[in-house]
């Protein structure tokens, strides 16, 4: 899976993108976020407040129950502030 991070999530995690192989326990967005939080203090800090994290799977907004696989591009970012 390709993971992308933007804005303060990117700076807190410390990278803008990474390739990962999903463990069997990760099947949806919610379990992906739970798994990422276990990966280190930077992930824990960036993803601590679920209300501040928006998720897009293959460029479309997705909720916690949206399924994910290794073929997806998943982006994590704060609420948008364009315009």
């Amino acid at each position: 899976m390709r993971l992308r991070y933007f804005a303060w999530l990117r700076s807190r995690i410390g990278t803008s993108s990474e390739e990962i192989v999903l463990p069997d326990t990760v099947r949806d967005v919610g379990s992906l976020l739970d798994w990422l939080r276990q990966r280190g203090a930077n992930y824990q800090a960036a993803l601590a407040d679920p209300g501040a994290v928006r998720v897009a799977v293959n460029h479309e907004y997705a909720g916690m129950a949206h399924p994910v696989t290794d073929r997806d591009e998943v982006a994590l970012f704060p609420p948008v502030t364009g315009g």
């Binding site: 502030t81 364009g82 315009g83």
Partner: peptide, 10 residues
């Protein structure tokens, strides 16, 4: 655009 498009301001 302001609520849906993925832009962020620093």
């Amino acid at each position: 655009l302001k609520t849906e498009a993925p832009f962020w301001k620093l």
